[in-house]
Design a protein around this nucleic acid. Structure first.
Lengths: 138, 138
DNA sequence: TTCTAAATAAGAATTATTATCTTTAAGTAA
DNA sequence: TTACTTAAAGATAATAATTCTTATTTAGAA
């Protein structure tokens, strides 16, 4: 995603385009691997040495609210952020903090088909994400 | 689950049977709805007014290590705990902090079958849990 | 160019959780 | 039953992540 693209997206959401917002959004996209707020701060400080920690948290939060980012979390660590692209699942490593994306349209179709056939009583499903835990082989 | 049952389980895991451990384990089971450490403390204080916060955290942690409890977390709140029964998924409410269990053996079988057929490259799957987000219809 | 609301910076405050250190008590064996 | 050993509990300090507050700055509209 280009910087112009990022600016365009912020505008579309009615967010003021500030250098901080652009940098933070760009950082999450560039860093991939679901960075924590801390990783984002570390990365951004290179070009924006004076950026405030609170700003990073606030901007991340507002990008999530505006559906430009998503939060990801497993049971053992702090909040992480993920750029919204296509719907995907997450592979969590049992032995480390590693998290990877996993996309599988066929799987999605199968699950979607399953739940359109078999409703959950008293619950309206909006989204299903698989938390796949296991081990990365080397 | 009876108190004797709880005591038996602690013994089986080689954990000393203390009133605090029994109370904490019992609380998570009784409270259902995936209580936070705070909820557990609140509940336990009724019968154990002098229990220490650190103890609750420590005991919860050791019950998780000994696979008597599981941690559950979604993207918007603090750690929650869940008694281990059968394998199950979670229904997360988009509008509140509510989390419910969801069991479906047929679904599990279907997913298991899918992944035994279609491997994930470089990853050995151990467990798959669905994070189903949506709305509870009162 | 000026104006105004919204955003940022700085740092204090809060919250959840963990660590430390002393005291207590569970389980074992005499 | 009693005494012993060691793990567990209690109290509280420390830490880490995140949120809040207030003054200052700036993006975008007029």
């Amino acid at each position: 995603m280009t910087t112009n693209n990022i600016i365009e997206q912020l505008k579309q959401k009615g967010l003021k385009v500030t250098p901080q917002r652009v940098a933070i959004y760009e950082a999450v996209i560039k860093l991939k691997k679901h960075p924590t707020a801390e990783k984002v701060i570390e990365y951004i400080k290179k070009n924006h040495p004076n950026i405030s920690v609170g700003t990073v948290y606030k901007v991340l939060e507002s990008l999530v609210e505006n559906q430009l980012l998503k939060k990801v979390k497993n049971e053992k660590d702090v909040m992480r952020y993920d750029a919204i692209t296509q719907h995907h699942h997450h592979l969590y490593c049992t032995d480390s903090e590693r998290i990877e994306d996993f996309e599988d349209r066929e799987l999605d179709r199968m699950i979607q088909e399953y739940f359109s056939r078999k409703k959950i009583k008293g619950f309206k499903v909006k989204e299903i994400t698989l938390q796949i835990t296991g081990e990365f082989k080397n």
